[in-house]
Amino acid sequence: MYWGGNPAECHPRHFTKYTLMQKSKFLPRGRKDRTMALVDIRATKSAKAADIFLQVRPGKDFEMITILRAMVKGESIPESQIAETGLSLETLEDLVARMKAAKFGAIFFGMGLSMTRGKHMNSAALLTLAAEMNAFTKFVAMPMRGHGNVTGADVIMRWQTGYPFGISFNRGYPRYNPGEFSTVDVLVRGDCDAAFIIGADPGATMPQPAIDHLAAIPTICLDPHVTHTSKLAKVHITTAPAGIAAPGTGYRMDEIPLPLKPALNSPYPSDEEVVRRINQAIAKMPDWMPEGEPPMVLSQV
């Protein structure tokens, strides 16, 4: 099942390499042994690849998943309520039956789910549905991560700080609170007074108040191109593109790391080198934390 994503256009080899086409020991006929359902608000190119396409009304994903959670457990939901999601009772009953009959179900969800109204709760809903499906058959769920190595950032922050994103080191140790320490919120409120941007172009993608704040504070930008962010930044440094002219490691969306093998030699330094040199330059300055007076730990009460 794909939900709120368009792999045919955004992850073109997902079908062929990972999900639909591969012949395998237990599914020797490849595509013929598999059923694909797509849930989205419109019939994208990916719908052509699907056996079933379910067109959910925009903003009704959370409701639809919650209905499925109830139906999976045998609760009956009135047809009129289901109709609100843009789907019929019959369609959902068929979907639930197919899910239960599967030998191994996998749900991949995209930003059409996780970045629309409800956000993290939409993802939570789908993960819970997948978990609850295991009372009947094997089911798993995974987010379809977008650009590049966003998974690597997530994984590394988890092992070094305990948290995947939205972290504050203001007290000398990691704290976590999405909404409080997440970038869009921080910028829109104008909380930070300097910004270091790497491997992203918020100047092109974020809401205007966030961009305005980035322009108002000293912003440092590292990128292989001069981007929108570079143009509003105090400092821009051109770096070698990762995986093309800079070596290292990148994580696949299923958290498997892979070596990056550059084919080109860049005239620019790598991100790694530049950030390390900034770290070294800062290490030479007096420490911001007063000696002998570590900050108070603000722990759960």
Partner: peptide
């Protein structure tokens, strides 16, 4: 680690020093 932020909040915090990275126990 990702599944237990509530535990990180109540556990021992290792505050960064000039020679040591920060971290969380638990």
């Amino acid at each position: 680690r990702a599944m237990t932020p509530e535990d990180h909040r109540r556990t021992q915090a290792f505050i960064r020093t000039q020679s040591r990275r920060s971290g969380l126990g638990g």
